[in-house]
Structure formats: C-alpha cells, structure tokens
Simulated scan of single mutants.
Amino acid sequence: MRKHFSLYDMQGLAFGILLTSLGVTFLKAAGLVTGQTAGLAVLLSYLAPLGFGTLFLLISLPFFVLSWKRRGAVFTLRTVIAVAGISVVTQFLGHAMSFDALPPLLAGILAGACSGVGLIALFRHNASAGGLGILALIVEERTGFKTGLFQMCSDAVVFGIALIYLPFDNVLCSFAGAVVLNAVIAWNFQIGQARSALRRGCPPPFAHSR
C-alpha cells in the first residue's frame, strides 16, 4: 500500500511550495499580478490591508470542498499543506529578500518559470496549489482539456480585472509571466503521462487518492 506521505512525496511537496512561493515573491517585488487564485490574492493584497498569505488561504477554502468530493482525502490534505506552505513561505521570502533592480518583464518571466515548475512538482505528488488549480486538474482528467490551457482562460478574467487597478505596462508584463507559467505546465505535464508511468511501475506523477 502506497504511503500517504512518503519521503519521496514530502520532498516533492517542499520543492513545489518553495518554487511557487519564489514565483509569487518576484511578482510582488515588481508590482505584478498572475492568474488563478494566486492572482486574485496578489491583486487583492495591493488593495486590501490583508497580506497575500492570508488572502490566498481564504480564497482557497471553498475549493477544498470540491477537492474532497472529487479527488479524495489524500489529495485534499496535501493541497491544504501546499496552500498553507505557500502562504507562509511567500510571507517569509517577502521579508527576507530584496531587489535593487528587478525589471518588470524579467520579474514576470522568472515568476512564471518558477511557479510553473513548482506547480508541476505539486501535481506530480498528488497535490495542487488550491483554488482553480483543483478544478483545472479535474477538467483535464475528465475531458482531456489541458490544465495549462484551462488556466490561461481563467487568467484572462483576472487580467481583465487587473487592468482596472494596475498600470497597463505592469499588466502586460504580468501576462507575459502567465504565458510562461501555463506553457511550462502545458508542455511538461499531462494526466495521460501519469497513467502511463503508473502502468510501467514508475512513481506516478499524478494518481487518484485511495
């Protein structure tokens, strides 16, 4: 019986949390935004007195119910750990790191690359970063519509809202970062590959919770 929290899975979750948090840190340092639940949390953190970590956790809460019903207890617990970890680590990195020069376009690209790799790590270890990421995984599994492409569609809504509150140049650089993030996921992660790996006896990148 596969352990719910093996050392293999723990290192994967830790790596995913760290890389995703680093991506959000780049965004915050340059005054940018991203898509999905994290994007809403970043955008609200510019407008509300609450920090990103608190907002990210609060916005993700309703999606945990969907996760529990559709993905099971193990996936949901790991996702809760990932969301809480990203909330805490992002706050820590925001205070521990500073940048003398960080061009917005470079920040967007670095954020997209780091977060994309971090999210893939979470997906491969039967977790997600919460929010719409949970729905995206369910949609790909049931319909074949790629997670990255699903997230691009929802990102468009977030960026439309961001245009109201942020300078156009910042939103444009943010969009470039989101394209990088979702391209990394679309090109490097597929539910079908997870099933093939499982049939070959390899550690499954993404499997149903049992």
Results as ranks from 00 to 15, higher is better:
104 P>D: 13
155 D>E: 01
153 C>Q: 01
144 G>V: 09
117 V>Y: 14
97 M>V: 11
135 L>R: 00
141 E>S: 07
129 A>F: 06
170 N>F: 08
105 L>E: 08
159 F>R: 02
161 I>A: 13
91 Q>T: 11
124 R>I: 08
156 A>F: 09
143 T>K: 05
105 L>Y: 15
154 S>W: 00
79 T>M: 03
119 L>T: 11
148 G>E: 05
107 A>R: 04
121 A>E: 05
106 L>N: 04
109 I>T: 09
166 L>V: 10
105 L>A: 13
81 I>A: 11
148 G>R: 04
141 E>V: 04
89 V>K: 07
162 A>K: 12
116 G>D: 11
144 G>I: 14
103 P>M: 06
135 L>Y: 01
142 R>I: 03
144 G>S: 04
132 L>F: 13
82 A>G: 07
131 G>N: 06
141 E>N: 09
117 V>I: 15
135 L>I: 13
135 L>V: 15
134 I>L: 04
111 A>S: 13
114 C>L: 15
159 F>P: 08
151 Q>G: 00
111 A>T: 07
162 A>Q: 10
83 V>Y: 05
129 A>G: 14
157 V>R: 06
117 V>Q: 10
156 A>E: 04
76 T>I: 04
165 Y>H: 12
147 T>I: 15
149 L>G: 03
128 S>C: 06
86 I>P: 04
97 M>G: 04
152 M>H: 05
110 L>A: 08
110 L>Q: 05
146 K>W: 05
140 E>H: 06
86 I>R: 03
98 S>C: 09
117 V>G: 14
119 L>P: 00
160 G>V: 07
150 F>W: 02
87 S>D: 01
107 A>Y: 01
87 S>T: 02
101 A>K: 06
168 F>S: 10
98 S>E: 10
170 N>A: 15
103 P>F: 08
96 A>V: 12
142 R>F: 03
135 L>E: 04
87 S>I: 03
133 G>R: 03
130 G>I: 04
129 A>K: 02
138 I>W: 14
150 F>M: 03
150 F>I: 00
93 L>V: 10
96 A>P: 00
